[in-house]
Design a protein around this nucleic acid. Structure first.
Lengths: 185, 185
DNA sequence: ATTAGTGTACAATATTTTTTGTACGGAATG
DNA sequence: CATTCCGTACAAAAAATATTGTACACTAAT
């Protein structure tokens, strides 16, 4: 009977966990993560010790190859950290369990990538557009159209300057002031 | 010759625009938008007047059916607004050209959805977990495992309370204080 | 009312993305 | 130094997603 009850508890805890894991996966889907990555993060979130690829493979019931791929994407978005030490030759991975840090890491990275892509392309476009506007051969109509585009890009530039400041503040933890993160450092 | 020069200008402007549009699409890819939606938003961003489905179809060289689908996803994420009035029976859509507002709309919506999904699932899980912990039949080991999960969920709850405040502040435009948005209202 | 024409649902198709299996380079072990 | 075994690259297969075509409901004009 004690055995039976033990199983009940384990199963019940498994069900409760799975609901949360599904919610996490659904949530991560929103930001472009694959469903598998989301599930994997959910599993690692509840696991209190670092995991190896083989463990993930078993828990996710998927190929090791795919786990390698999934965990890499999580490491890249800094939702998971690769540990320095190994366990019997196997590399160890641990989820970032502090949601505040996960938020900070994830959005800092994504927004910074956006800023880089957009500012680079705007920086290239602005002189080209200016050149076009200054060209004496083009018609007034063409010049006006080009000018409209120029204003749009200038607006974009202003926006990305703001976004850079926003990201910097996020990096510094400004927005977490009121709520203290479990890990204060 | 003036004709020829005019074509040059139009084509050059088209090339410059296309680079920016590609960058926008790449950027929106990061947040889970489809590539087509990203391209479509880019086109609409540069277009200064509202567009109809047929115009989109031509500009994107895609089926009207698909444009209907793509524009709906943009309207849902509030990157594009459906106008009240029609033009010769056709519905009109206009891009949100203010990047500050687009940011505000987009993230307010996505983060709020995340908050709703997660808080609902955490709210369901907490009493179940508490029930399990209070169960007199389970072993100490099981109880401790359930307790660990409980702490994780409580941490999640704290995080989502913070995130809700963050979203509220974003809605109120707190983070735009220093930079004034083109449309101040 | 009748007609014309728009937007969308839905099934079929095309394309992209994810997943797997396998093979191999390279690091840890003896 | 040889051997074992881990992690990943890569091609093939499977699954998911995006796109199209068609049909139809519904709105707007006649």
């Amino acid at each position: 009977m004690s055995q039976k009850e033990g199983n009940y508890a384990t199963e019940q805890r498994g069900r409760i966990r799975q609901n949360i894991i599904d919610a996490i996966a659904e949530t991560m889907d929103l930001y472009g993560a694959t469903h598998s990555s989301g599930q994997l993060y959910g599993i690692m979130f509840f696991e209190d010790r670092p995991m190896t690829l083989d463990e993930m493979k078993i828990r996710m019931n998927m190929s090791k190859s795919n786990m390698s791929y999934a965990v890499r994407s999580l490491v890249e978005s800094q939702m998971v950290k690769k540990l320095e030490e190994k366990q019997e030759r196997k590399e160890l991975y641990a989820a970032e369990v502090d949601f505040f840090l996960a938020f900070q890491n994830f959005f800092t990275l994504k927004l910074q990538r956006e800023i880089n892509v957009m500012t680079e392309s705007i920086s290239k476009a602005l002189p080209e557009l200016t050149e076009l506007i200054l060209d004496q051969h083009i018609s007034d109509q063409e010049r006006n159209l080009a000018l409209q585009d120029l204003y749009k890009l200038r607006h974009g530039q202003t926006y990305y300057e703001w976004l850079q400041q926003f990201v910097n503040a996020l990096k510094r933890g400004e927005y977490f002031k009121d709520f203290s993160s479990p890990i204060d450092c």
